[in-house]
Computed example of a mutant assay.
Amino acid sequence: MPPRHRLVRLLATPALAAVLLPLSIAPATAVPAAGGGSPALVTTLLPREVSAGWLARQLVDGDHFERVVAGTVRPDQDLTVDAVLAFAAAATADDAGARATAWLARPDILADYLGDGTTEAYAGPTAKLLLLAQVRGLDPTNFGGVDLVARLLSMLAPNGRFADRSQSGDRSDVASQSFALIALSRTAAGIPQSARSFLSAGQCPTGGYPAAFGPTTCAGDPDATALGIQGFNAGNGAGSSGYAMGWLVNQQRPDGGFVSPGATEPNAVTTGRASHTLFTVGSSGGYRAFKWLEPRQLRCAAAPEQRGAVPYNSTGFDQATAVRATVQATLAFSPGLKGFARLSAAGAKPESPVLSC
């Protein structure tokens, strides 16, 4: 079965000024440039730059991530897209972002992720690639030969849901609907009102969004709610996500972390996603979540190959979960980007910095 988008948990006040302070001011460090060019001189590294640099060095063959499914290694387009968005948010590792984008545009990789566009077409991947093309300043109507705008709109059902066309069933969810709204808000035509209404109708009575639409018992999910807020707010000058925001803020632990449903302790994926969204609406909860994440970033006390990573939870560094955790933490470490709807890779530095120890 081809890979599909999935919601995975393994995304000028004094407080905000503190977020922007450098992680360390180290002696000048020569960072090799991609392609063998002159090294870039780095004297100060922010947490987002350190994490983005570590992520870039984890890319397989320098341009993608992989996953293991039933003992078989497969390309992981979804995680690769997330990493490219994180590089843009960090405003660094742009060379890595460009290589990963070129890999995603390969016909075989693209078809495996999006489907063939007829019998198989997946809403979440299409929406996320549309967003990626916009963030990278590319033509979204011709990404690897695919018109991503037209493809996404072709999956809009009469009820406003962006639904998969697939022999294995429709697995579109709150995350895929949210990314569709975010990406379409950046197009000239904007968001179909039916699509925004469908997302809003999926909200639980308590204010949160469930991970999947239409559950028997509606229970808010912090990851889905964080994305739902950004989706509902995208291009929405007349509306407000305040009810969902209130629910999300109420889920924050006293230490600033966020816990996934069924878990007993906070993790970096859910906390990173929540922090990213809270920053976009100016909530102090974003800073509190940042302060939970920032001390957990591995620095000079860690092994050199781990420096810059953010472990998933208190169990410590695990390569299998650290990449996704670090992707979401990087977004949280980049509060100035104002969310996915305004994210751009323009002006990002090409190098992938290394923390000087």
Rank of each mutant, 00 (worst) to 15 (best):
G97H: 01
P158Y: 01
I109R: 15
P311T: 07
T330P: 00
V8P: 03
P107C: 08
D170W: 02
L132S: 08
R48Y: 11
P304W: 05
R186C: 08
R9C: 07
S334E: 00
E305Q: 13
A322I: 04
R196E: 00
R6K: 11
A226S: 13
G207H: 12
R67P: 07
L298T: 01
T271N: 09
E351C: 04
C357K: 11
T72R: 14
C300F: 13
A133N: 04
V327G: 01
L343N: 03
S176E: 02
Q297V: 07
Q297A: 08
T44W: 07
P107E: 12
A219K: 08
R342V: 09
E265K: 06
V146H: 02
A175Q: 13
W292T: 12
D94Q: 14
G282K: 09
F213M: 04
T141Y: 07
I25R: 12
A238Y: 04
S241W: 06
A301D: 13
R67V: 12
A56F: 05
P14M: 08
S200L: 15
L152C: 02
V8N: 09
L278V: 04
A289T: 10
Q252T: 08
K349E: 14
P75A: 04
R196T: 02
G97Y: 01
F162V: 01
E351H: 14
D147R: 01
A188N: 13
S314F: 05
S240F: 03
N267A: 11
L293Q: 09
R165Y: 11
E120S: 04
A90N: 03
R171W: 12
T126F: 00
P14G: 11
Q193A: 15
G286M: 10
P261R: 12
L148A: 03
G207V: 07
G144V: 09
